[in-house]
């Protein structure tokens, strides 16, 4: 995994609450057996009409994604299904961080494994940030700070996932080093 240390980028604000994984990538696109190239399907039903034409009603079609890597979204982002296709689609679209006041549990776990940083902030910070759509913000994972304008907000990231992101550690590789303990457990318990 590519390490994540500091990210400075413009924001995109999607203020809706409870943006679920069916919005992030609709289920009918989940028949893929690959994890690549899903960015074009991100927020598909928000970005395209019934004939598959992109329209300008959503900000997502009016930005250059790689210049806007920070998604600022309403409360309870990523609720719903466990599909990892959601962070795959978001990262392929260009996002590297999601800022909300609450982010769903399985989504958080999936995002962290894909170099997409979930950042949970208090409502006031979120309001200030959301009022500045398109402006630059900096997310510093070393100091766990979100900085924009003259604001500095602290955020928390589970310590192990943070270490993995900072160092680009592969969690499966790390887990495999525990195989001797796993074998012991099996001898002890599942005899």
């Amino acid at each position: 995994m590519t390490p994540f240390t500091t990210l400075t980028s413009r924001t995109v604000v999607l203020p809706q609450e409870n943006i679920d994984t069916d919005q992030i990538i609709p289920a009918r696109f989940l028949t893929t057996t690959s994890r690549d190239g899903l960015g074009k399907l991100a927020f598909y039903d928000w970005r395209y009409d019934a004939e598959g034409r992109a329209h300008g009603d959503t900000i997502l079609n009016r930005i250059a994604p790689c210049a806007h890597r920070i998604l600022v979204a309403g409360r309870n982002f990523g609720c719903g299904s466990s599909r990892e296709h959601a962070p795959w689609a978001l990262t392929d679209f260009g996002f590297r961080a999601v800022v909300s006041t609450e982010i769903a549990d399985i989504f958080t776990s999936n995002a962290l494994k894909n170099g997409l940083l979930p950042v949970v902030v208090d409502q006031q910070t979120w309001n200030e940030l959301a009022a500045r759509t398109g402006e630059n913000a900096t997310i510093d994972l070393e100091s766990c700070e979100l900085r924009f304008g003259n604001h500095v907000a602290k955020f928390a990231v589970e310590s192990f996932a943070r270490r993995c992101l900072l160092d680009g550690v592969d969690t499966l590789g790390w887990l495999i080093t525990h195989l001797p303990a796993i074998e012991d457990y099996e001898k002890r318990v599942a005899a």
Binding site: R35, S81, S82, R83, E84, I106, S109, N110, K113, N114, E158, F160, T171, L172, W174, L175, I176, H178, L179, I182, E186
Partner: peptide, 20 residues
């Protein structure tokens, strides 16, 4: 509980998960 695809890989490979 439900897990993502990376974790499906973890369980296939080790029969374990990293959990808080």
């Amino acid at each position: 509980f439900g897990i993502g695809t990376s974790e499906v890989g973890h369980v296939l490979a080790t029969q374990c998960l990293l959990q808080r």
